[in-house]
Structures are given as structure tokens and as C-alpha cells.
């Protein structure tokens, strides 16, 4: 692809190629971190007489404990749960068992994050979906997530008026997840590739797309890309 005439978007086939390359590289340069895995999804409509569609799916990185994402003494937001019916008084139905360890110290409250990279057919770019939850499964609200986001995140969100967090239905899970809205992605991706002379010369490497993309998007949510991954644009060709 010629970088100058390129509009910053990606076809779904290219996304697949780029996703595979990205997951491989991640494993290569970031082995201490859990791997990104490709989650295949059956197409929503049976592919009847249409030509067989590309394999659909998304990249997934789950149960990530972001640095600093532990909360002390989290108060479960049981806002709508009827407290009275939960705490009707303790029930003494079990014999005392002295082989059961009774933990006295309230151990560290840990929050986990799940990240999915999903291809958007309408914007023709990858979209980062994410969610956070306490270790017992209670989801984190956006304001709680914002407290976990790295300090540079607010800056990125502010500077790029196209990058903002919205809550929308996850295209495959059909539940609301947070996402970084993709409406400016193609523009800044184009700028990103054009600003790099060497890349502008060799053309746009599809394999490198997701690495470059996540190097920007990751800043918002605190996913760091190893430097070697960025600096190694051609290793997959």
C-alpha cells in the first residue's frame, strides 16, 4: 500500500493478518505477559449462498491486573440490591469446623481488566473494548475505571478530541462494554504512518498496523508495548 494515498483504514482480511502477526510478536517480545488470543466467533448470519465470509473474531487479553488497580476496602456497590434481605441475620446452619482457615486480614482487593480488539466494519479500523471488575466479578463503573487509568491517559483523551470512552454493546458478547470510540482512528493512523519517514517509503505494512495502533490506544488504558515490537516493523514479512 502506498502510504500517501492510504486512508488509514484496514480491510477485515488485513485485520486478520495484522491480528495474527500482532499476537505472535507479543508472545515473542512480551513473554512475561499473558498472551493475546484470537477468539473465533461464528458469523451472525449463516453464510447461506453468500461467498464464505472471512473468519470472524477478536483478539482477547483477559484478567489483567493493571499496575495500581488494587483498591483498598472496596465497598461493593450493591446500590440496587436489597441490603435487608441480604443481611437478615447470619445463619447458624453449619457445624463449627476447626479445619477451616478463618482469614482475619482483609486481603488486597484486586481489580482485573479484560481487553478485546474488535474490527469495526463501519469504521474499518480496530476498536478497543474493555471492562474492569473486582475479583468477585462485580463490574467496575466508569468513574472507578478512570481512577485506575494512567496519568497520561487523561492527557491523551483530552488532546485527541476523537478519542473518548463510551459504553456500547460488545459486538460479539452483546453486553455493554467500554470502548474507545473509533471515529478518529483512521485519521491519526494515517498521520502516524506518514510521520514516519521510513514507513512512508516502504509503504504501509499491514502486519505492523495493530502494533502501531495499540502503541497509541494502549496509552489510554495503560497497556505498554515493548519498544522492540515497534522498532521491528518488517520481522513478519
Amino acid at each position: 500500500m502506498d502510504a500517501l494515498s492510504w486512508d488509514g483504514t484496514l480491510t477485515s482480511r488485513d485485520f486478520l493478518v495484522s491480528a495474527r502477526a500482532f499476537a505472535e510478536k507479543w508472545k515473542e517480545f512480551n513473554s512475561a505477559f499473558p498472551p493475546w488470543t484470537w477468539v473465533p466467533c461464528p458469523p451472525k448470519q449463516p453464510p447461506c449462498h453468500l461467498p464464505q465470509l472471512l473468519q470472524q473474531g477478536y483478539l482477547s487479553l483477559e484478567k489483567i491486573c493493571l499496575p495500581g488497580s488494587s483498591k483498598k476496602g472496596h465497598v461493593t456497590s450493591q446500590e440496587d440490591v436489597d441490603e435487608i434481605s441480604l443481611t437478615e441475620g447470619e445463619e447458624e446452619f453449619e457445624p463449627v469446623d476447626n479445619a477451616t482457615l478463618v482469614e482475619t486480614n482483609n486481603s488486597l482487593q484486586v481489580c482485573y481488566y479484560d481487553f478485546h480488539i474488535v474490527y469495526s466494519d463501519s469504521y474499518r479500523v480496530p476498536v478497543l473494548y474493555f471492562r474492569g471488575y473486582y475479583i468477585d466479578g462485580q463490574p467496575l463503573a466508569l468513574d472507578e475505571i478512570e481512577k485506575d487509568l494512567p496519568a497520561c491517559s487523561a492527557k491523551v483523551l483530552l488532546e485527541s478530541k476523537w478519542t473518548f470512552i463510551t459504553q456500547e454493546e460488545h459486538p460479539y458478547l452483546n453486553r455493554p462494554w467500554y470502548k474507545l470510540h473509533p471515529c478518529g482512528t483512521s485519521e491519526w493512523m494515517k498521520l502516524l504512518f506518514l510521520s514516519d519517514d521510513s514507513r512512508a517509503k516502504i509503504g504501509v505494512a499491514v502486519e505492523q498496523y495493530l502494533v502501531s495502533w495499540l502503541s497509541v490506544v494502549g496509552q489510554v488504558v495503560g497497556i505498554r508495548i515493548p519498544f522492540e515490537m515497534l522498532n521491528n516493523p518488517k520481522s513478519c514479512n
Partner: peptide, 18 residues
Amino acid sequence: WELNKGRKIPRGISLAKS
């Protein structure tokens, strides 16, 4: 039976937001 913060009571979760 699992304890809820050290007490023998059930747990609750609200998912009205989602």
C-alpha cells in the same frame, strides 16, 4: 458455605447499569 466478608450471609450484585 462461602462467607461474605467473614459473615454467614449471601452475596448480592446489581447489574442494573448493564
